[in-house]
Amino acid sequence: MDVFMKGLSKAKEGVVAAAEKTKQGVAEAAGKTKEGVLYVGSKTKEGVVHGVATVAEKTKEQVTNVGGAVVTGVTAVAQKTVEGAGSIAAATGFVKKDQLGKNEEGAPQEGILEDMPVDPDNEAYEMPSEEGYQDYEPEA
Rank of each mutant, 00 (worst) to 15 (best):
I88H: 02
A85I: 13
G47H: 14
S42W: 15
K102Y: 15
N103Y: 05
Y133T: 08
G132R: 11
A89Q: 04
K80D: 02
M1W: 00
E123D: 10
E104D: 09
E130H: 08
K58D: 01
L8T: 00
G41A: 11
A89K: 03
Y136C: 06
Q79I: 08
D98Q: 07
V63D: 01
L113D: 13
Y133E: 10
A27N: 08
V40G: 01
P128M: 12
D121G: 11
Q62I: 08
A29P: 00
E114P: 12
N103E: 08
G86F: 14
A85V: 11
Q109N: 00
G101N: 02
G31T: 14
V15Y: 14
E114G: 10
G86W: 15
V82N: 03
E137P: 04
N103W: 14
V40I: 14
G51V: 14
G84D: 03
V48Q: 00
V77P: 02
E126A: 15
Q134L: 10
K43Y: 14
K58W: 11
G36K: 15
L38H: 03
M5W: 07
A30V: 11
G14A: 15
D121A: 07
F94N: 03
G86Y: 13
E13R: 05
K32I: 13
A11H: 00
L38V: 07
L38R: 15
T54Q: 07
K12L: 13
V3H: 03
A69D: 03
K60N: 02
M1P: 00
F94S: 05
G47Q: 13
V15C: 06
E114L: 07
M116V: 01
L100Y: 09
E131G: 04
V52G: 01
T22A: 12
Y136V: 07
M5Y: 01
Q134K: 11
S87Q: 13
T22H: 02
G41M: 11
S129E: 08
P117C: 11
V37H: 00
K45D: 00
A27I: 14
V16N: 04
G31Q: 14
Q79Y: 10
D121R: 03
E83G: 06
K23M: 15
V49F: 10
L100K: 03
G36V: 14
T22D: 00
P138H: 05
T22K: 00
V70Y: 04
V3I: 03
M127T: 04
M127G: 03
T81G: 04
M116F: 04
G47C: 08
K32E: 00
G84E: 06
T72R: 08
